[in-house]
Amino acid sequence: VTAVNATIAIWDDYESTLKTITRYLKWFDEFEELIRPVKTVDDILSAKLENRTGIIFGWQNAAPIGNDLSRLRLFHELGVRIIQITYNERNLLGNGCYERVDDGLSRFGLAAVKEMNRLGILMDLSHVGDRTTMDTIENSDGPVAITHANARSQIDHPRNKTDEAIRLLAERGGVIGANAFPMFFERGFDTDLEEYLDAIDYLVQMVGPDHVAIGTDFCMEQPRSFFEWLFMSQGKIPATDIPYTPEPYQHLRGFADPSDWVKVAEGLLNRNYSESDTKKVLGENWLSLFAQVWSK
Rank of each mutant, 00 (worst) to 15 (best):
G94K: 07
V4E: 08
V204Y: 00
R36F: 01
L252A: 00
A239R: 15
E164K: 14
L282M: 15
A63N: 12
T133Y: 07
A111H: 13
L289E: 03
L18C: 13
N5R: 08
G188V: 04
D13K: 11
A9G: 09
D102G: 05
I10P: 12
K263T: 02
H157L: 02
L282A: 02
L18F: 07
Y202N: 12
Q234P: 00
D130P: 04
I155Y: 03
S46Y: 11
E138I: 09
T240N: 14
N91F: 01
L105C: 04
F108I: 08
G79E: 11
F231Q: 15
F231D: 12
R81I: 04
L252I: 14
R81C: 01
F226R: 03
Y249G: 00
T20A: 13
L74Y: 12
R100V: 15
L122G: 05
A111V: 01
T40F: 12
K161L: 05
L93F: 06
L230M: 14
R118C: 02
F31N: 10
L125A: 08
L193A: 04
I55C: 12
E275Y: 13
L49M: 14
G267F: 03
L69A: 11
A6R: 08
Q234M: 11
E266H: 09
G254M: 11
L69P: 04
T86Y: 11
F28A: 07
E32H: 11
P258L: 06
H211P: 06
D103E: 14
E171C: 01
F218I: 01
T40Y: 12
K296A: 13
Y202D: 15
L287C: 07
L252F: 00
K263V: 00
G177N: 10
T7Q: 12
P182E: 06
D141T: 05
P248C: 04
D260I: 08
N160F: 04
F231E: 14
A256Y: 15
A265I: 07
L110C: 07
K280Q: 10
V212P: 05
R90Y: 11
F290S: 00
G142T: 13
C97W: 08
D201C: 04
N91K: 07
V113S: 09
V113W: 01
L25R: 15
